[in-house]
Amino acid sequence: MATGKASNDGVVLSRLSKAYGRLRAVDSIDLSIRRGQTVAILGPNGAGKTTMLDMALGLTRPDSGSITLFGMPPARAIAAGQVGGMLQTGSLIEYLSVREFLTMIASLYPRPLQVDHMLQLTGAAEFADRRTNKLSGGQTQRVRFAAALIANSDLLVLDEPTAAIDVGGRREFWTAIREVAAEGKTVIFATHYLEEADAYADRIVLLARGKIVADGSATEIKAMASGRTIRATLPGADLAQLASLPGVTNAERRGEAVTLNCASSDNALRALLSRFPEARDIEVHGAGIEEAFFALTVGERDDPNQPTQVQGAR
């Protein structure tokens, strides 16, 4: 089971809360991450991912609760060079070349990686001598990423590192992270790309409205949503009635087709056929992680009629 017991050795968030006005951005979160784990913080926009990570990095002061990184307060772990991070937004300082910039960042850490090696690994070598203010958005992102990795720190915190990066680029990012983080490093990354969490994390923490709604391996997360979807052609059926069928967690309609997300597809299918014998073209699918994501975060919304947008490859 990935949900580890509290340990001083990794990252521990205890009853962490932060509100902005009436919005509870992070609502009493307990999370402990063992040293060496790669954890994805997955959630829709506004789920509290960035607020949580900013607090873990000591950038935002929590209203209540506590954070320790390797048994220390964030500021102390950062001062000791044990933390490398890439924030969601931020630019580079100007009037330095990419190589000079990375050399400067590396000089701040006790055991940095080689600048040339990092340039190669992140694909920044080809523009290493260009000034930081003359880079494209994608190039800037690569340099920011290289600056986080070059720290060679025990903990790597990445807030949506591959946002605005194409799929090919994303794969390169993850190859680099895997190489750098190979020896027992702890990696925490926020993402709303479901396939990224599925492919690269040992553990997925699903956040919605400032709360952890699921926590486990990708397989466990899928199992929690029980992993089945029933699709059928059923004109004019009442959605509320469909949603209340045994085993169904949620129902939606697209034209004449209805989709039932199921906790138990066996029970749902039996009930569907007995109550709606006119249903035809019935298909039962094993849910991808995006269905799991949908099933777990829906119901956390104010307006149940508003469709949840779920991004991700099908």
Binding site: L57, G58, L59, I78, A79, A80, G81, V83, G84, G85, L87, T89, G90, S91, L92, I93, I105, L108, Y109, P110, R144, A147, A151, V157
Partner: peptide, 17 residues
């Protein structure tokens, strides 16, 4: 300028004092 570009925040998560 460093504050507005987010550079100050980035620096705060390095060991730079």
């Amino acid at each position: 300028a460093d504050r507005s570009t987010g550079w100050t925040r980035q620096m705060r998560i390095t060991p730079l004092t």
